[in-house]
Structure formats: structure tokens, C-alpha cells
Design a protein around this nucleic acid. Structure first.
Length: 542
RNA sequence: GCCCCGAUAGCUCAACUGGAUAGAGCAUCUGCCUUCUAAGCAGAGGGUUUCAGGUUCGAGUCCUGAUCGGGGUACCA
């Protein structure tokens, strides 16, 4: 529709001999009295033509040839031209929606481009926290939205099981193991205090008895802990309907020699220098804030930046057209170095999009709940999901833009009443299902013969919103902002609930009943598709 | 110090990426269930969009500066 209007305006411009090279801006309006679509073209042309916008609008509108789909246009100060769709145009969306059904709203916009979405990427030192939850849901939903728009998406989890944190995890397990064997060892300040370590230790006691009681360096402690933690992480993610196509281990970068070769390449590109016995990367020459150490002098090993760069190079090697990294705010300082590194090596950094999300604060009754991983005072994502369910967790994590701090109100999330916004959407779906069931019981067949009877403002408004779904899906894909979908679904559910209250669907008038049944069937499809897109279930009864 | 994010109704946040009268939910108050699900609908109150400048026909949105929050700023990951 938008491109139709653009064509109409371009024709009008041509017949007035006006040259305007930029794309004409046509957008959905906010209010019904401004019609369905609007353009600011006259305002944009004022400078070029040196005429008042209203005058330009007059001239343009005289030359505009209206197709049947548009009822009328209006000129409104300071210089907008508003387009009003005909009721028939809106009504005709119903057959289209019913026809496309579970595909309605999807697109082939992505042209099957290969996309890699990296998210969560928490090292396996303990259960996922609520903070990881935001990233997990955000990343997964972005992936879903891209798939919906015709991209081929793979989800990847990057982790490192070789570092200091993992060593401490092993030590913590060892201490717990000794404790269970009756030694009075104590956990140190730096150790992980969580209960899950005890469980892992007790399994070791069961399996091996005291066989390793003096063998603190044995890999078995770290390895069993890692395996147990990963098993739990995967189980938690599964509860949230999240899966990964690949778990990428940083260690493989060392094993395959990629780390060394990247360092060598950077040296050859003259992007490094030596200082104080360490090897530095000239980040500031390639857009980063400052130069950083790549290879330590105090220990003969790389800093994390080098494997991070090497890891991203594998993403290029694996031929992805688009690379999306979802990070928490605590990582925002590291990615510019990675990008600078890739730039130095000549990779096309336009392919990378980084989504940074801000922190999550968990509140209960207005009180902040403090979170510390090491002290195990945090609420785990698993506990949260068990408590309030997948749908509410997913909804809460994507209802705000990634750039906003997320205030997760446990009280509100737990509420099963009308104050919980998730149910507003699901309730609309359940209500529609209920009506459709009733119609079926009465043997009323919906049909599209008399859609022209749908002339009430509530129906036309709902239809207008339903017709917008595809645009919203693309917007969400382009901006990588899942909350666009939520905002839209809220608006649509409101329009439906309003219609429901004002007009009874199944009435004595059989013709209008059939038409309205078609309308709510179409509404159900959009609700269902929208909820599925963000990974939330659409219940048939509530 | 420097870098990133934020500041919008009492609270939590939107605002289609520069448009028209800044909108929702929660909370408060008032109505609406003998009819398809009241987990709903209608109405009321609540705003100098933190402040000061600037760009623009037009600014919550862009630029500069300030103030206040959060995060980062290791040869930790």
C-alpha cells in the first residue's frame, strides 16, 4: 500500500514537472481523523519550490489520481496529505489473511541470507542468572523474527572452559568433595558458594568414594562440574523454548592454531607493536578507543581479545552474510576492539551487528533483590521459569527495548490476574476461540460473502491494524527490536477487545454474524502468528 | 578523567526512527456482567518530555554543554 501511494505521488510530481530524487516518505497515521496513510511531501518541498506547503499540497492533490482502493485524500496543516482507504480495501484483507494463514505477516525479505546469532555465551561456571535470561530470550526472539522474514538463522553459544573461572570451579568442587568426605576444609572467598557445587561433589563421592581426596589438580573436578552445569543450562533453556545449533568452544581456536595465525596476520598488517615486553594491538588506528594488549608479558599467553577476534573470523570463514552478537552491557567495552581487529585484517565489518542490552533489576514489592553469582544470592533463571512459566518470562524480557534497564517486577510477573500484561494478549486469543467454538456448535459457517457489512469503526480500525502486521514484522527485523511486536500485539488486542465489547459476533442477523466470524478468524491468525513469533503460547481456553 | 546506555504521568515503560493534540499498563477514583470468557470495556484525575542553548517549516527524537542514575574503563573473561 505504501509503495502504491508513493507511485501515485510520483505521478503527481511528474505531471507538475517537479524533480524530487529522494524517496517519498509515506507513513501510517496515529489517529483515525488523519486517515490511514499520510505523507509530508509538501513540507519537504517547501524549500525546493519556495512556496508555502499548503499551496504545494493543493497543487499536488489536484494532480493525484485516486485508485479505487483509496476513498479520499485530505490536506491538513501544516502541510500533510492524508489518504483514506475505502472500507472495501480494508475488508479485502480478510480473505488475504485467511488465505496465507500461518504464513501471514512473514516475508522473504531476508532472501535466504545466512545469519549467525550469538547469544548467552556464559561460561559454564554455574546456573544461568536472570541477567542471562534477558539475553537468552532477546537473542532467541531476534533469531525467530529473522527466520520469519526469510533469513536462514543459526543460533550459537560461545564458551570458554579453560580459564581462571573454570579452575576456580574445579577447586570449589574439590573443597565440597573433601567436606563430604569429612575433612574440615573451607571454601575461600573466591570460590563458588552455590548449592549446585555440593550436588556435583556428592555425585563424585557416590561414584568414586575418597579416591581423589588428595588429588586437587585432577581434571575430574572441573570436568564433572562443567558437564553438570551445561546439562542444567540446556535444560533451563529448553524450558524457555530456546535451543542452540552450535556450542562453540574457545579452546578449539587454540587447538586448530587459529590464535597464532591471527596474531601473525595482525603483525603482518603492521597492526601491532611491542611495549613493555607485551604485544599490543593498534586499536586506536582502527576505530577503537585505545590500544590493548594482545599477548601478555607476565605470562606467555593471549588476552581474551585475541581469541575473540579469532572466533569472529571463523564466522566470516563460515560464510555468514550477517553476524549478530547479543551482549550484556558489561561487555560493551570489548566488542569495539574485536571490530577494530577485524577491520585491521580487512573484513567487512558492515556485516556485524551488535545488540547490547542493559542490565536487569529484579524487584519484589518495590525492593531490589541483590544479585551476586559467586555468593549465590541470585535468583536463577531456572527458578524464575519454574515459578512463573515460560510465557511470562519471555514476555517480560522482551517487552522493553534492549537499551533500557529492565525492571523485572516479580510480584507483577507472578500475578495471574488482569494486572499481568501477558494475559491480555492470550485472553484475546482465548476469547476468539471460545466464540468460534460456539459458532461451530450452532453449525454456523463463516463466509466472506458479505464482508461489506463490516462498516463499524471498531471493525475497520481492527482491520487496519491487522493489515499492518507484515510491516511491523519487517520493522522488528530491520531494527532487531522484538518489543515492536509486543507493542503492536497490545494495540491489536485492544482493538479486538473493544470490538468484542461493542458488537456481539454471533447474533440473530446471520449475514453479519458470518462476516464477523471471518473477521475474528483473521484476528486469531494474526494473534497466533504474533505470539508464536515471540515464543509465547496462544491458549484456546483460559 | 575517558567511553557506552539511560532520564518522558505517582510507578514501570511506549512513541512506527524528525511530524499533526506525547500514548499504554499499574496505582487512585467512577460506571458496565440474565446475551459469544469482566484475565474485558468506558470515563476521571495525573506532563514545561531533567536543565540551558542550537539546527529545522516542525524536536521527546538530531547537535553542544550541564545535572543525576547504571555499566565499563586490567597484561581477568
Amino acid at each position: 500500500m505504501i509503495s502504491n501511494i508513493r507511485d501515485i505521488l510520483e505521478n503527481a510530481l511528474a505531471s507538475l514537472d517537479i524533480k524530487y530524487d529522494n524517496q517519498i516518505h509515506v507513513e501510517r497515521t496515529k489517529r483515525v481523523e488523519f486517515g490511514h496513510f499520510s505523507t509530508n511531501l509538501p513540507l519537504v518541498l517547501t524549500k525546493l519550490l519556495r512556496q508555502p506547503p499548503l499551496k504545494i499540497a493543493e497543487k499536488l492533490s489536484e494532480k493525484i489520481k485516486l485508485p479505487d482502493s483509496i476513498d479520499k485524500i485530505e490536506i491538513k496543516p501544516p502541510g500533510f496529505i492524508n489518504f483514506f482507504l475505502s472500507p472495501a480495501t480494508l475488508q479485502n484483507f480478510i480473505p488475504e489473511i485467511l488465505e496465507r494463514n500461518e504464513k501471514y505477516g512473514s516475508s522473504d525479505f531476508g532472501k535466504k541470507q545466512q545469519v549467525l546469532v550469538e547469544f548467552v555465551s556464559a561460561n559454564p561456571t554455574g546456573p544461568l542468572t536472570v541477567g542471562h535470561g534477558r539475553q537468552a530470550v532477546l537473542g532467541d526472539t531476534i533469531a525467530r523474527i529473522l527466520e520469519w522474514n526469510g533469513y536462514k538463522v543459526e543460533r550459537e553459544y560461545y564458551y570458554n572452559d579453560a580459564g581462571r573461572q573454570m579452575r576456580i570451579l574445579g577447586e570449589s568442587t574439590f573443597v565440597r568433595y573433601r567436606q563430604l568426605l569429612g575433612f574440615d576444609d573451607e571454601l575461600g572467598e573466591e570460590h563458588y558458594q552455590g548449592e549446585y557445587i555440593k550436588d556435583i561433589a556428592s555425585e563424585l563421592v557416590e561414584k568414586y568414594g575418597n579416591k581423589f581426596q588428595d588429588d586437587c589438580d585432577n581434571e575430574i573436578f572441573k570436568n564433572s562440574a562443567e558437564a553438570a552445569v551445561f546439562k542444567d543450562i540446556k535444560a533451563t533453556l529448553k524450558k524457555l523454548a530456546i535451543h542452540f545449533d552450535c556450542f562453540y568452544n574457545e579452546k578449539s581456536l587454540y587447538d586448530s592454531g587459529k590464535i597464532e595465525s591471527v596474531l601473525k596476520d595482525l603483525k603482518e598488517k603492521n597492526a601491532t607493536y611491542e611495549k613493555d615486553g607485551a604485544i599490543w594491538f593498534k586499536g586506536s588506528e582502527f576505530g577503537a578507543n585505545s590500544d590493548r594488549v594482545l599477548w601478555k608479558s607476565v605470562a606467555d599467553e593471549a588476552t581474551y581479545r585475541l581469541p575473540d577476534i579469532a572466533y569472529h573470523i571463523t564466522k566470516y570463514m563460515r560464510k555468514y552474510d550477517l553476524i549478530i552478537d547479543v551482549f550484556g552491557a558489561d561487555h560493551h567495552g570489548t566488542y569495539p576492539d574485536v571490530i577494530a581487529g577485524l577491520k585491521a585484517l580487512g573484513y567487512d565489518i558492515e556485516k556485524i551487528k551488535v545488540v547490547i542490552h542493559q542490565f536487569v533489576t529484579l524487584t519484589q514489592g518495590g525492593q531490589k533483590i541483590k544479585m551476586s553469582t559467586r555468593k549465590a544470592t541470585y535468583v536463577t533463571l531456572d527458578e524464575l521459569t519454574n515459578e512463573i512459566g515460560k510465557d511470562v518470562v519471555r514476555y517480560f524480557f522482551i517487552m522493553r527495548g534492549a537499551n533500557s534497564h529492565l525492571n523485572f517486577d516479580l510480584e507483577l510477573a507472578k500475578a495471574e490476574g488482569d494486572e499481568n500484561p501477558v494475559f491480555y494478549l492470550q485472553y484475546a486469543h482465548a476469547r476468539i476461540c471460545s466464540i468460534l467454538r460456539k459458532a461451530e456448535n450452532r453449525n454456523i459457517e463463516p463466509d466472506s460473502q458479505n464482508l461489506s457489512l463490516l462498516t463499524e469503526p471498531e471493525s475497520l480500525n481492527l482491520l487496519n491494524i491487522l493489515s499492518e502486521f507484515g510491516e511491523i514484522c519487517q520493522l522488528a527485523a530491520n531494527s532487531l527490536e522484538p518489543q515492536q511486536i509486543i507493542t503492536y500485539l497490545q494495540k491489536m488486542a485492544t482493538a479486538f477487545h473493544k470490538l468484542y465489547t461493542e458488537h456481539i459476533v454471533i447474533s440473530e442477523d446471520i449475514e453479519i454474524t458470518k462476516a464477523r466470524l471471518q473477521l475474528i478468524k483473521a484476528t486469531k491468525i494474526v494473534l497466533f502468528n504474533g505470539l508464536k513469533l515471540i515464543g509465547i503460547s496462544a491458549p484456546e481456553r483460559m
